[in-house]
Design a protein around this nucleic acid. Structure first.
Lengths: 343, 343
DNA sequence: GAAAACTAGGAAACCGGTTGCCGAACCAAG
DNA sequence: CTTGGTTCGGCAACCGGTTTCCTAGTTTTC
């Protein structure tokens, strides 16, 4: 095999310049070149300048492997999504990547696809690559077993949280979000609120349901019927409306566990001749633009601010890498985005 | 700053083991340890075993920076999404990450967010980190200027393509997909097909529209009216249906440029009393499960097989890294997924 | 004008592995 | 007992930077 025939393009550069080539061109030693490039040591300004122009001319970029080797720092972090990359992981990743990029950190992407074997494989890979830290994200907020014990580097869990309370986790305040949703419904004069949400075994569903119930209780009210647990789909939203209408318990608002459910609810309500928001106000959860904006009318929804959450996680990780860890569970508020479905 | 106080956890390991520690424990020299671990040189089986158990015992993982330094290979590639990570980039990234991970490659994630400055920043970063190759992806299939000229490493464009025909690009056969959609409609007896799609300045919209028109022409038919260019939204789908119904030109099928449009079309048709698929058959594009499955009835749609596309791109990149580049534009077929909207 | 104090820049060790080369120990053959 | 061929494993160079230490040359000081 030829040494590195990487492309047929004629203008292809063979190899990046090394510091010794820069030193040679500038007529100094390698050590001096290094000092000039990093602003260390005491050099005549003219010498420094000569090295800098030589570097410029050769398009010199220091070999990060070499830098890593004697600093011990890789300026790299790993991001493991335990569930498949999806609607929730993306904003998280974007936020984290944004904050890390600003700190000159690069991000290794690892998609463990819900497979513990893949997860451990990636963990070993990341440790072998000596990343400075790891962010673990997932699709659900439920606590999960720590990804590893006694790791030599800091780990931050984002959205998902670690079952070990000493680990650093950043999670959205889903209960607070649900309370905000209910408060808004109360503020707009609704008194008979139903709740349609995802499966009962899903952590988010139960947390949001309890918080909503509790907040109504504080206002001396009760949920219309029990929380309706089902699945995170439009079809379930439609079905739930049929059940609600059949139950003969009047309601003037539905707080939904997700925007998809809310959209199904909206469709079914209108099919049944109920107007949104005049007859029934509607609040969703996730503020997933595709759903919330396409809904008719556009949907008021709770936004978990995942991008900011990812950014926070990255900042906490950077702090931990720099020797200032913040162990424990950190909570970030949700934001209510008001649209026509409750106007 | 303390040297590396990374977490408060007591069991925290200070530092990963080095090969010299392994060698010490096994009672051999560093070089011998290296040979034992890599299966090189000629060693007594017993010696080899002693080194292996020492490595095992210390949890030794070779420092990749050191390996990189003398192999020149980083076993790392960069993945740059030119547009923001979104619905299209995700499956691409997953496919690529999957194929690369199987080849022991790690992936640097770079989200350029449609910003040329960020893009060049990431490119420099990746080159400085001496990645073995780069995959460029984006949200649209249109050709874009090459990300850099005369790069020392191979680059593969996935989904998006490079304006330079010598660059390696992998794109879905959107025209073929559109033809398949039309063929299916013809096969199910439809003869009066309308086409509602995205903005005319969008490459995908025009390519798909032309292919659909052409395929109808081959059957001696014409599109009902001109292709209706608008935007990629449900609202436009609904509006287009109102326009179609108002035009008094009968139609028995609508081929839509996206699933979102198709869903708007479905809703508006049903609101107008037209049954899907009995009166009007409907085909979407993208096979975006959230839309295609939630649509009533579930939507027949063209799937661009983005995950496979990403995998192909990764395979081509790996081949190029190993000295076997495949310059030029590579096309991958789309797949028609048949559901109730055309049954 | 000589000694002391700086200054600029070079030599070399080092980070943690890999690999070519060489020598020691062992075996069998002469 | 010497010689030649093997086998095993150590030594040291090397990858590309950074950093410490040190020296030669210049400037300052008395």
């Amino acid at each position: 095999m030829p040494p590195r025939k990487l492309s047929e393009t004629p203008g292809n550069v063979a190899k990046p310049a090394t510091i010794s080539e820069v030193a040679l061109l500038a007529g100094v030693s390698v050590g001096t070149a290094s000092k000039a490039l990093n602003g260390r040591g005491s050099l005549r300004p003219e010498t420094r300048q000569r090295v800098l122009s030589a570097a410029e001319q050769l398009g010199f970029q220091p070999n990060r492997a070499a830098v890593t080797l004697n600093s011990g720092r890789t300026y790299t972090v790993g991001m493991i999504t335990t569930d498949t990359i999806g609607r929730f992981s993306i904003p998280l990743m974007m936020g984290a990547e944004d904050a890390l990029g600003a700190g000159e950190m690069s991000v290794f992407l690892c998609d463990a696809r819900d497979d513990p074997i893949r997860e451990q494989y990636y963990l070993r890979t990341l440790l072998s690559r000596r990343v400075d830290g790891i962010i673990v994200t997932g699709r659900r907020t439920q606590a999960r077993p720590p990804i590893g014990a006694a790791l030599p580097i800091p780990v931050v869990y984002a959205f998902i949280s670690s079952a070990d309370p000493h680990d650093c986790s950043v999670v959205p305040d889903e209960a607070g979000g649900a309370r905000k949703a209910v408060e808004h419904l109360l503020a707009t004069g609704r008194r008979r609120v139903a709740h349609v949400t995802g499966p009962e075994h899903h952590h988010s569903a139960t947390v949001r349901a309890s918080a909503a119930t509790e907040r109504l209780g504080e206002a001396g009210l009760e949920l219309v019927g029990a929380p309706m647990f089902g699945e995170w789909s439009e079809a379930w939203g439609r079905q739930a409306v049929r059940m609600l209408l059949g139950a003969n318990a009047p309601f003037d608002a539905v707080f939904c566990g997700s925007d998809q459910i809310a959209r199904g609810v909206a469709d079914a309500l209108q099919a049944a001749g109920r107007r949104v928001p005049e007859d029934v106000a509607l609040v969703g959860f996730d503020n997933w633009d595709v759903m919330a904006l396409a809904c008719q009318p556009p949907l008021t929804s709770v936004d978990m601010e995942l991008e900011a959450l990812g950014r926070t996680a990255a900042d906490l990780l950077l702090a931990a890498i720099n020797g200032a860890p913040s162990p424990g569970r950190h909570t970030r508020p949700c934001r209510l985005v008001i649209r026509d479905s409750t106007a």
